[in-house]
Amino acid sequence: MHIQKINEGVHALHDTAGLHVGNFKWINGQWKFKAIGYDPSGHVVPGGGPLTDRHNSTFLHLDASVIHAQFFQD
């Protein structure tokens, strides 16, 4: 799992295989997760993908260990 800063208000989340699975956006004083999936043609599916059940999860801080524990149950 990897969190990549895009800008001050957006960080991309990549799973353990490197697939882009969503973004964290700073909204109203908290980080909100926005899941992203891709259709067979490669088009973005907002709210889709492997973490669709985590769409709109919120965090006060982007703590990689907390996010990993909540999103990637091994």
Results as ranks from 00 to 15, higher is better:
residue 12 A to D: 14
residue 66 V to D: 12
residue 71 F to C: 11
residue 6 I to R: 13
residue 20 H to D: 12
residue 45 V to F: 06
residue 10 V to A: 07
residue 51 L to F: 13
residue 11 H to Y: 06
residue 52 T to M: 14
residue 20 H to C: 04
residue 64 A to T: 07
residue 70 Q to K: 10
residue 32 K to Y: 01
residue 72 F to D: 02
residue 40 P to M: 05
residue 4 Q to N: 13
residue 17 A to S: 14
residue 55 H to S: 11
residue 49 G to Y: 02
residue 15 D to R: 00
residue 44 V to N: 08
residue 51 L to C: 13
residue 37 G to H: 10
residue 41 S to G: 04
residue 31 W to T: 00
residue 13 L to R: 05
residue 71 F to A: 04
residue 69 A to T: 12
residue 64 A to Q: 07
residue 12 A to R: 08
residue 3 I to E: 00
residue 37 G to Q: 09
residue 56 N to R: 14
residue 31 W to Q: 00
residue 25 K to Y: 13
residue 55 H to T: 08
residue 63 D to V: 08
residue 41 S to L: 02
residue 35 A to V: 04
residue 58 T to F: 01
residue 66 V to L: 15
residue 72 F to P: 03
residue 21 V to Y: 03
residue 73 Q to E: 07
residue 48 G to T: 08
residue 14 H to K: 15
residue 39 D to Y: 03
residue 49 G to D: 06
residue 4 Q to R: 12
residue 72 F to N: 05
residue 2 H to L: 09
residue 71 F to K: 02
residue 39 D to C: 03
residue 44 V to K: 10
residue 55 H to I: 06
residue 5 K to I: 05
residue 17 A to Y: 02
residue 26 W to T: 07
residue 72 F to C: 04
residue 52 T to K: 15
residue 61 H to Q: 13
residue 30 Q to R: 15
residue 52 T to E: 15
residue 33 F to S: 12
residue 51 L to Y: 11
residue 59 F to Q: 05
residue 32 K to C: 12
residue 6 I to M: 10
residue 54 R to D: 12
residue 72 F to H: 06
residue 35 A to K: 09
residue 29 G to T: 07
residue 45 V to R: 13
residue 1 M to I: 08
residue 45 V to K: 13
residue 23 N to W: 02
residue 16 T to Q: 06
residue 60 L to C: 05
residue 28 N to P: 02
residue 66 V to M: 11
residue 37 G to V: 04
residue 22 G to V: 06
